[in-house]
């Protein structure tokens, strides 16, 4: 270790063990699920510089917007209405549940 003695909490042996394990794990054959996931790459994001005009002529562009005070009438009404269950499992329980999931 090149770190000063007082901070040398991680031994060279521990690092070697960890790196050796990492190389072994990462070179192991892919699981069937992981191999299957390889096929879902490239579900593409859209290009955003397009030439599409907005619908109609009188909607969004001319509407006045005031969200200070009481003028704002909208409340979030999407999937957020299905969240916030206080009885749900811990954060790590949630994480373990979808570790293998790829991007959509």
């Amino acid at each position: 270790m090149n770190t000063t003695a007082s901070h040398a909490v991680v031994s060279a042996a521990a690092l070697a063990l960890a790196l050796g394990a990492a190389l072994a794990i990462s070179s192991a054959p892919l699981t069937a699920q992981a191999a299957d996931n390889e096929k879902c790459f490239g579900v593409a994001m859209q290009g955003k510089n397009d030439c599409a005009a907005g619908p109609g002529t009188t909607c969004a562009g001319t509407a006045k917007v005031d969200y200070q005070g009481n003028a704002w009438k909208l409340v979030p009404q999407g999937t957020c209405e299905q969240t916030a269950s206080p009885t749900s499992p811990t954060g790590f329980g949630q994480l373990e549940a979808f570790k293998e999931v790829k991007q959509s």
Binding site: D50, C51, A52, A53, P55, G56, T57
Partner: peptide, 18 residues
Amino acid sequence: FAEDRDAAGERLLIDNHG
């Protein structure tokens, strides 16, 4: 294009590529 009307009710075509 999409079709709209101007303030006088005449055809106003919108190049919307849609």
